[in-house]
């Protein structure tokens, strides 16, 4: 597999504080990679470094083998970027925002309407950006990122603050891009989203990667703390260890017809990450 992104020993400081702390990882071409982390973890900063908008103090990052800081116009054309603050022209219509972007690329292929249609904004093509709802603005920013048919897509919190239906729409669009063979690098604070979308995830906390792997791998790794929760009909909750002796106890409850519900608590990404960061994520 080709490496789409390679990061080695990357560090960055804002003043005295170390926002990115000696990070190394790689993303394979065609994968969806999720960078998770609480607010202020350094996710946006990392995207800025990878996309050459910010020069890292130490270490190196490469996109398709090219140093981020040395990227030129030709290399940029392989990148689609949706930043957390969008960068759209508010007084211009959806269509004209995309048209301008295409003109800058010197691109004459007129696929704007098709792209607008794919994000469900064809009816709003003449609407000014300032009059769009939050979800529509997100989708337009996404549309602009995919307009140049990038080889790699950077999405900074593509679904934050959206209702579940719109989130679902955006997830579909992300999968459609993946099917096209695009590598996707996204950030989120939403564990459910990461579990659903990503082939690999990394948890960033205070500038360090504290976990890395596929969602299933990570959950398996933290299985040691698996417990069984039993809720009894008399309202009592019993927590049992996941081992042989517990079986007899469960049987006892069961035979006595005392069991209301019974769950095995596999750790979700969320509980793992809460344990690792000591912070609560919002979903």
């Amino acid at each position: 597999m080709n490496k789409a992104i390679e990061v080695k020993g990357l560090s960055h400081y804002f003043g005295p504080s170390r926002v990115i702390d000696n990070i190394s990882f790689a993303v394979e071409e065609g994968n969806i990679f999720g960078l998770l982390g609480p607010s202020g973890a350094g996710k946006t900063t990392l995207i800025n470094i990878l996309t050459g908008q910010l020069r890292a103090a130490e270490g190196e990052s490469r996109i398709f083998g090219i140093e981020s800081r040395h990227m030129t116009g030709k290399d940029y054309k392989q990148l689609g970027i949706m930043m957390d603050n969008f960068g759209l022209y508010e007084r211009m219509s959806c269509y004209n925002n995309l048209r301008f972007y295409q003109m800058l690329d010197g691109n004459q292929n007129k696929n704007i309407e098709a792209v607008l249609k794919s994000v469900g904004l064809l009816d709003a093509k003449k609407t000014r950006v300032m009059n769009l709802s939050k979800g529509m603005t997100n989708r337009l920013a996404f549309a602009r990122a995919v307009l140049r048919k990038p080889r790699i897509l950077f999405l900074d919190e593509p679904t934050s603050g959206l209702d579940p239906a719109t989130v679902e729409e955006i997830h579909k669009m992300i999968f459609a891009e993946k099917d096209r063979g695009t590598t996707i690098f996204l950030t989120t604070h939403n564990m459910y989203e990461a579990e659903k979308l990503c082939d690999k995830i990394a948890l960033l906390n205070e500038g360090k990667i504290v976990e890395y792997g596929s969602p299933a791998d990570i959950c398996r790794r933290y299985n040691h703390q698996r417990k069984i929760n039993i809720h009894l009909k008399n309202g009592q909750d019993v927590v049992l260890e996941h081992k042989k002796e517990s079986g007899e106890q469960i049987k006892e409850y069961w035979d006595g017809d005392k069991v209301e519900t019974i769950h095995s608590t596999e750790p979700s990404l969320e509980t793992i990450f809460m344990e690792l960061t000591g912070r609560i994520f919002d979903i």
Binding site: T51, I81, M83, D105
Partner: peptide, 13 residues
């Protein structure tokens, strides 16, 4: 302020 300048930079303007 609206971060459109960065977008221009990414388009190599």
């Amino acid at each position: 302020e609206k971060n459109t300048l960065r977008v221009l930079q990414m388009c190599n303007v």
